[in-house]
Amino acid sequence: MARSNAGTKGVPRAEREQQILAVASLAFGTDGFAATNLADVAADAGISKPLIYNYFGSKEGLFAACLDEAGDLLAGEIERIARGDAVGIERGIRTLDGMFAVLDEQRHLWRLLHDRTAPPNGAIADVVSHHTQRIDKLAHEGVTELLALAGDTDERDISVMTAAWLGIVDSLMDWWVAHPDETAAQMNDRVTRLFTALLTDIVRGQS
């Protein structure tokens, strides 16, 4: 008798789910939610289409599971860096470095997390909201530390700078994903140079 946690052809369910998620994440991240066909995902994963419905319930359920895994990967890395000893702009650079590192071989996950063709409500929206809140909280914490170093504790200054920082991160990641020839290491060096040049210019202007 087959074990209750077994998938098809003796493959454990958890392992089979990960195989499906890997194939589906690549498909969704490459073609977008609207253009992705579950029959193609099933074929690429070497399984039947009904098995996807058995595991994830629907196309939306599969996409939500892919989103949750990608969001947890990214937010988890940012949280890991936040627990370190870096503060101020160094924490910001390390955060970007960590994001580049975890996404270097799977940049489709960034596109997956920002897919405008995905349904804007339901389980998908709930997953997006959950991980967005995690990341926004960490950004607010980092900016609060950064401004505190300069003696600025104004809540609106913190709010404005948090929004600006999140915009900078999104822009840098979008640019990087659009330039697949740029490695994570090269991007980290580039960001470090840019931030160093910017801060040096600011300090020079204040002296």
Results as ranks from 00 to 15, higher is better:
133 Q>Y: 06
87 V>F: 08
15 E>R: 15
25 S>N: 09
124 I>D: 02
27 A>R: 15
34 A>T: 01
173 M>N: 07
7 G>M: 09
80 R>Q: 11
182 E>A: 15
123 A>Y: 00
8 T>K: 13
120 P>A: 04
129 S>R: 06
194 L>S: 04
55 Y>T: 07
143 V>Q: 00
77 E>C: 10
96 L>M: 14
126 D>W: 01
64 A>S: 10
119 P>D: 05
62 L>I: 06
142 G>D: 06
74 L>N: 06
150 A>F: 07
154 D>Y: 01
36 T>Q: 10
140 H>P: 00
75 A>Y: 01
23 V>T: 14
50 P>Y: 13
152 D>Y: 09
84 G>M: 04
60 E>W: 02
69 E>M: 12
174 D>F: 00
49 K>V: 14
162 T>W: 07
177 V>T: 09
206 Q>Y: 04
6 A>N: 09
72 D>V: 03
177 V>F: 03
193 R>G: 01
166 L>C: 05
114 H>K: 02
73 L>Q: 12
103 L>T: 06
29 G>F: 07
23 V>D: 13
53 Y>H: 14
134 R>G: 00
131 H>M: 03
134 R>V: 00
196 T>G: 04
157 D>A: 15
2 A>T: 07
37 N>K: 13
19 Q>C: 07
81 I>S: 01
22 A>S: 11
105 E>F: 06
154 D>H: 11
167 G>C: 14
122 G>N: 00
20 I>M: 13
17 E>F: 05
135 I>M: 02
21 L>V: 09
195 F>A: 09
38 L>V: 02
193 R>A: 03
137 K>T: 10
135 I>L: 02
41 V>H: 05
122 G>V: 01
193 R>S: 08
8 T>A: 12
131 H>S: 05
79 E>W: 03
188 N>D: 15
100 F>V: 03
180 P>N: 03
156 R>K: 14
150 A>R: 09
13 R>I: 09
103 L>E: 04
13 R>F: 10
124 I>R: 02
1 M>R: 04
20 I>G: 12
145 E>S: 10
161 M>D: 09
167 G>S: 10
182 E>C: 15
156 R>C: 13
60 E>S: 14
75 A>E: 03
6 A>P: 10
186 Q>K: 11
57 G>R: 11
95 T>K: 00
43 A>C: 00
178 A>I: 04
184 A>E: 04
69 E>N: 13
51 L>W: 12
82 A>R: 11
108 H>R: 07
19 Q>E: 13
167 G>V: 06
75 A>T: 10
91 R>G: 10
186 Q>H: 12
207 S>F: 14
12 P>V: 06
177 V>C: 04
147 L>S: 04
15 E>D: 15
60 E>T: 10
112 L>N: 03
54 N>V: 15
117 T>H: 00
124 I>P: 02
57 G>E: 08
7 G>I: 07
110 W>Q: 10
137 K>H: 05
72 D>E: 13
193 R>E: 09
134 R>S: 01
118 A>M: 01
177 V>S: 09
187 M>F: 05
103 L>S: 08
189 D>I: 00
104 D>M: 13
57 G>P: 13
156 R>I: 15
